[in-house]
Design a protein around this nucleic acid. Structure first.
Length: 331
RNA sequence: GGUCGAGUAGCUCAGUCGGCAGAGCACACGCCUGAAAAGCGUGGGGUCACCGGAUCGACGCCGGUCCCGGCCA
């Protein structure tokens, strides 16, 4: 794969499942002197500013860290880390705001542009695969047509999904053939785009299965599953100890109605269920652990398809084990 | 000790009249274009507690053993 040689401004992506330590690795990258291919000191007039070691800025690529006030459960970077290294993509909206990919993409692309303009280097911390893809592989993402969507969703409640799928097949056979006839979510969206835009859904770019060479250095942190499972369990208990339940009640106080998207956050929905009497606290915590483990597997499955990712096997200490490898990748 | 009920997939449990062993969850694998911490699909898995018996044929019927739970002593 003919990826361009990294320059000192090539963005770095550190990705991996939840609890893999990618935020720590990003912070370490940003705060430790790393070997760079460019001469740094001596004030040689190398020209074009190559003599400067770029400063780092972090772009958090995470669908839940965008919500203000959802800190503990999303493992959001601390105030201290954010004071030491500029962070982007955090605290974009309140939990009553219905947030979606396109909104993130706009913020992310703007942030990347600003970072380059400052001659700084971006470190993307990737947890949400789709969000990350819209940054590394800018795509022609169709718009949204809420009225069309609402109508389709209303129909999907009463009509067999097979009929709606057949309708999509008539308008866009290719798209219809690419999705399970039972996947209401995807079928409704594809139809929404066909009807709303007047163009076949499948005409919007090659989709997610193309992985062209791209000017990002992407490293993935890979753990053995049982080890990661243990880390997840420990982290969930740590979050509870840090006051996750209080965070949830406080947040409910300020925002009685969370958006559909914010409501999905792991650790939050289960505790809300508990507060509503649907589960004991122990049950809720056990559910958080289970679902977070399953989520981590889904993240792995998403990321491991991307042939451009260079995997680093981590056994114990993400920072100590990943940094040297990343250093060699950058030189 | 007596008595009643139970023992089937990793877990919780269905299994009609004796005729190829089932579900949900978990787990593995795949998919993913404005909900993505969401959503959808596929798959592997069994000494039917154990021993014996009757039967062409037993998870099921008969006898015994073990184990768990309730009740009575």
């Amino acid at each position: 794969m003919a990826t361009p040689a990294p320059s000192s401004l090539t963005p770095i992506v550190v990705l991996g499942p939840t609890a893999s330590g990618k935020s720590d690795v990003a912070m370490a990258l940003a705060t430790t002197p790393t070997p760079t291919p460019t001469p740094t000191n001596f004030g040689t007039s190398a020209g074009l500013g190559t003599g400067v070691v770029p400063k780092f800025e972090v772009v958090a690529v995470d669908a839940m860290q965008v919500y203000r006030g959802m800190d503990i459960g999303t493992a959001k970077p601390t105030e201290h880390d954010r004071a030491v290294v500029p962070h982007h993509g955090l605290d974009l909206v309140d939990p009553d705001h219905d947030f979606a990919v396109a909104e993130f993409t706009a913020v992310g692309i703007a942030a990347l542009g600003d970072i380059v303009a400052r001659r700084h280097r971006a470190v993307l911390v990737g947890g949400t695969g789709l969000y990350l893809r819209t940054l590394t592989d800018p795509m022609d993402m169709p718009g949204s047509w809420p009225e069309v969507r609402a109508e389709l969703e209303r129909r999907a409640e009463v009509e067999p999904i097979a009929e709606i799928h057949a309708e999509l097949a008539a308008l866009d056979p290719l798209a219809a053939s690419r999705m399970e006839p039972s996947n209401t979510r995807r079928i409704v969206r594809a139809l929404e785009v066909c009807i709303g835009s007047g163009r076949p859904f499948s005409s919007f770019g090659p989709g997610l299965q193309a992985y062209p060479p791209v000017e990002f250095v992407q490293v993935g942190l890979r753990w053995e599953r049982p080890v990661l499972a243990r880390r997840i369990e420990q982290r969930v208990h740590r979050m509870m100890g840090e006051g996750l339940l209080d965070e949830v009640t406080g947040l409910l106080d300020r925002f009685p109605h969370w958006s559909r998207t914010a409501r999905q956050a792991l650790g939050y929905k289960e505790l809300v269920d508990h507060l509503e009497g649907e589960a004991s606290l122990d049950e809720a915590v056990a559910t958080i652990v289970l679902r977070t483990r399953q989520f981590a597997v889904r993240q792995e499955r998403w990321f491991r398809r991307d042939p451009r990712v260079q995997w680093i096997d981590i056994h114990d200490d993400p920072v100590a084990e990943a940094l040297p490898v990343i250093g060699t990748l950058l030189s």
